[in-house]
Design a binder for these strands. Sequence first.
DNA 1: CGGCGTTGTGTCGACATAGATATATCGTCG
DNA 2: CGACGATATATCTATGTCGACACAACGCCG
Lengths: 229, 229
Amino acid sequence: MTLEKAFDPRLATGETTVTGRDVEMLRAIDRFGSMHRAAAKLGRSYPHLQRRVVELEDEIGQLTRRERGGTDGGGTRLTAEARDLIRQFERLRVELAGVTTVPESIIRGTVREQYGELATVRTAAGEITARVPAATEEVEIAVRADAVVLMEPHSPPHSHTSLRNQLSGVVSDLAVGDATATVTVEIADGVGLTSVVTAESVDRLDLAAGTDVIAAFKTTAARGTPLDA
Amino acid sequence: MTLEKAFDPRLATGETTVTGRDVEMLRAIDRFGSMHRAAAKLGRSYPHLQRRVVELEDEIGQLTRRERGGTDGGGTRLTAEARDLIRQFERLRVELAGVTTVPESIIRGTVREQYGELATVRTAAGEITARVPAATEEVEIAVRADAVVLMEPHSPPHSHTSLRNQLSGVVSDLAVGDATATVTVEIADGVGLTSVVTAESVDRLDLAAGTDVIAAFKTTAARGTPLDA
DNA sequence: CGGCGTTGTGTCGACATAGATATATCGTCG
DNA sequence: CGACGATATATCTATGTCGACACAACGCCG
């Protein structure tokens, strides 16, 4: 049974929350120039759509310029604020989609020391510093593959960067795609760390199954979730 | 009007989707040992809760061991699969929450060349390679602050890493918190790139307002969203 | 054997959501 | 002044969700 990650993005303000349906509605109004045609194209009723527009504007401010009468009977156009709203929502959707799309690596460990929102965690691959909620012992550390940097093993020590977790390992799996490649580095027995890099980086770092590499990631990119509770 | 990013996590399988409410229900069953008490504590009706458990099990497989009769009247316990499900959901929630919590930097640009899912984009801060949907011209590139690596400017060139975007700039803002710090680097006039690093990295890299630094991020961590549409 | 606290069902009604329908209003044009 | 196509609004109805209530089945115990 494979469970797929999914989500519903929302933009919330005290009272109302803007949903994907609302954004779809605004897009349709923008494209078709009137709420009537937007409602028709979306297959939803005009009265509810119209009320929703008013409701949103009561909360968020003017989103449309609605005019009735005139040679074409009138119509509705979006304001710049509405377009900003759409862009903001789209960015959120893309960012959230990244979470469900990008592979993540899970490393179990036990918390050694906690510093505010950070902690050092002992794992099979050595000590890792990560974001960990307070007062937890056993944790799972999750690292997104697009946050894992691969480095040549014999390069000078990278002490002058903010990459605090640097784990040496061996490439155990390499899937080169169109323009990107998914690389899994075994950093300890049975512990893999997956990274998504450009195909160009695969060439530049001379990566292949069996290659020695250093997999690095920032403390703030590693998130621990409690295992107990 | 500030709109807060929000989301509803889900775990989807062909037919049913597991919602936060379902996970909360499983947690309550686990804690109180019976569906009746779980329903009471959650303030929801037993029949619907019970039906939902059966419905979920029909889709996902056995989640509970339900027993009736006996000295204590029976009760319901979770299976290991149910606990896995809860953990998986919690990880998703944490990852998605990261998106709404971590600051992101937005850089506008125009696509120069597209390679599959990647593209080089001309921006005010120079060329940047990023993930960009096909057939778009004007884009906004979003980079999460926990994916931005800070490096000393005079260190040897980091050509032996998978960090393809390396932009030099000046620290324009520095907010040191409990254990982490939010650093904004001005990489061009009016273009800021925000990074969240550990307080220790601030010391190690000797960061302060006005310091020269290199801000780097992976191509796969930069996501473009179309501006036109 | 009856009591108890469960799990398992069936059914009803309250409530919110959304489409369907009807009507009023508005402003330009022929 | 009437037609047209849009906005604005009231109201009815279908639908789905969920709590409320009722009742059967189960299995151990006193």
